[in-house]
């Protein structure tokens, strides 16, 4: 799909997604399907739209609700075409593996879930280990899944020490050199990144994806 210009009816689907109108999106999906378009190609068109949503979000032309809507519309498109929309654990042919969780003491998951849906939309194999995850559990899951990247989220300031404890636990378990660590959410910035000993931080979900792309393709 990259590099190819879209046909008019494909562009209509992209436009409907960028208008964030589910009825219009489903109508366009149906129209493409009736015209004999391959379902996988239709999903790819939706992914193109989702990429555009991510880029416009990064340049502050779109805002969080619209980013969530984009992810939801991608799911609606997949559902309408009969594809499963759950997290494809250990997906075949995935670009790389990312382990995601909200750290101990924090149960916020909106940011984590947005990162998850963007990573999945970009072809990564993502394992979501939930919220309020203690350092020891991160270590266990890193041992089990052997991810390329560990993503730690947290909205509250209590998350700073939990993130640090998690990185320290990875060091203690001898796993730190085997993974890249990215942190994000709420008040996380470069200072926090340095404090916890992460490799990078992402101010937005789209940034997190860009960083993963840089690390693991």
């Amino acid at each position: 799909m990259p590099g190819r210009s879209l046909a008019a009816e494909e562009q209509a689907l992209v436009d409907a997604i960028l208008e964030f109108d589910e009825d219009a999106v489903l109508e366009q999906v149906q129209r493409l399907r009736s015209g004999g378009k391959d379902p996988l190609q239709i999903v790819e068109v939706a992914r193109v739209a989702m990429d555009e949503v991510g880029q416009r979000f990064q340049t502050k032309q779109l805002f969080l609700t619209e980013l969530i809507m984009g992810g939801e519309l991608l799911k609606s498109t997949m559902r309408a075409l009969g594809f499963a929309t759950g997290t494809p654990a250990r997906a075949e042919g995935a670009k790389g593996k990312v382990l995601l969780g909200t750290v101990a003491g924090d149960i916020h998951d909106i940011g984590k879930n947005i990162v998850l849906s963007l990573l999945v939309a970009n072809g990564y194999d993502v394992v979501d280990i939930g919220v309020d995850v203690p350092a020891g559990r991160f270590v266990e899951e890193v041992r089990r899944y052997r991810p390329d990247v560990v993503g730690m989220c947290g909205l509250l300031t209590v998350a700073f020490d939990s993130m640090k404890a998690t990185v320290d636990a990875l060091v203690g378990a001898g796993l730190r050199d085997e993974v890249k660590v990215i942190v994000g959410g709420g008040a996380v910035d470069q200072k926090v990144c340095d404090y916890v000993g992460a490799d990078a931080w992402g101010p937005t979900a789209a940034d997190a994806v860009a960083i993963c792309r840089k690390w693991i393709g």
Partner: peptide, 12 residues
């Protein structure tokens, strides 16, 4: 939830 309310805002 915010995701549910967001879905609500996508539907007329």
């Amino acid at each position: 939830t915010l995701p549910s309310l967001t879905r609500d805002l996508m539907r007329g």
